[in-house]
Write a protein that binds this DNA or RNA. Sequence first.
DNA 1: AAACTATTCAACCGCGCTCTC
DNA 2: TGAGAGCGCGGTTGAATAGTT
Length: 307
Amino acid sequence: MGRAPCCDKATVKKGPWSPEEDAMLKNYIEEHGTGGNWIALPHKIGLKRCGKSCRLRWLNYLRPNIKHGDFTPEEDSIICSLYISIGSRWSIIAAQLPGRTDNDVKNYWNTKLKKRLLGRRKDRDAQHRQSAAVTSEMSTENMNDGERALSASAMERIQLCMQLQELQNPLGAHHNPLVWPGSGCRTTTLSNNNSFNSNSSSVTVAEPGQSSSINEHLMSGQLEGAAMDGLGSPSSAENSNMISMEAELEELLYGEGNQGMASTVDGGVQQGDVDWWSYEGKSPVVCRDFTPETTTVFQDYTSVYDI
DNA sequence: AAACTATTCAACCGCGCTCTC
DNA sequence: TGAGAGCGCGGTTGAATAGTT
């Protein structure tokens, strides 16, 4: 038996919002607020819309200070940085970009950023293959610094990141706790009392040397969450792939020479931490600031790939 | 100019979580 | 304590638009 629908589908209007509907919703909320009940809101206003649809329209379009238009290079960097750190948790990522909505960020990533990154990589691979055919004697030792920098660029690691997700969980890779330690469940629900649910929603950022590395999760049998459910245990070959990929990811995040380490950030702000939640009174989720190495990596690909 | 293809993004959908009774 | 209602999230869809042949 399925869940009861949130509204009567037969009487509810769907599709694009008209200017009149926008005005009705905007005027009402500006005057009365949401009343804490989106489901009841359309009935009060006289809108033939689902409450969820009203909420979405308000949050993504009508809300004051919404920023539309092109993303800046700085915003691109933030999106990529956070995507690598926490995966497709768009609401958290959007919270770092004032005026941007999670829907905006998600669309931007899926339609532009991801394609731009992967497309450039594809072009470059083709060029490398072509030049290798022409000058077969050319070895990597003969590559110039720029070429070497490209081959070890952050772009490859982002792809690695994506590939790792697919390897780990082709059905729902983004929330695989192996890939994103601490994100064992997809929901990042923010409670109304400004506390952060530490059971499933704490943001964990891999950090040199701590025990939430993929390898240690595998070895210690501490895996939890849905990622492994129904998928069986990874083979030893997959294990070794994961382990090497994890090293790549750690290198991406923290640069070479750092030991694998992770810190589950669960609300306690430490010195040097950045308060990632300063967004509309939402919960104070804290993520560590990016290290200089990480910053360098993103400067690398933002410059190389014209982001 | 027409047909086809690719891209964009607003909106919908289903599900997990929290809250309330 | 359990059930139901509502909220918030990420994934997906599809109409509109732009670009190409």
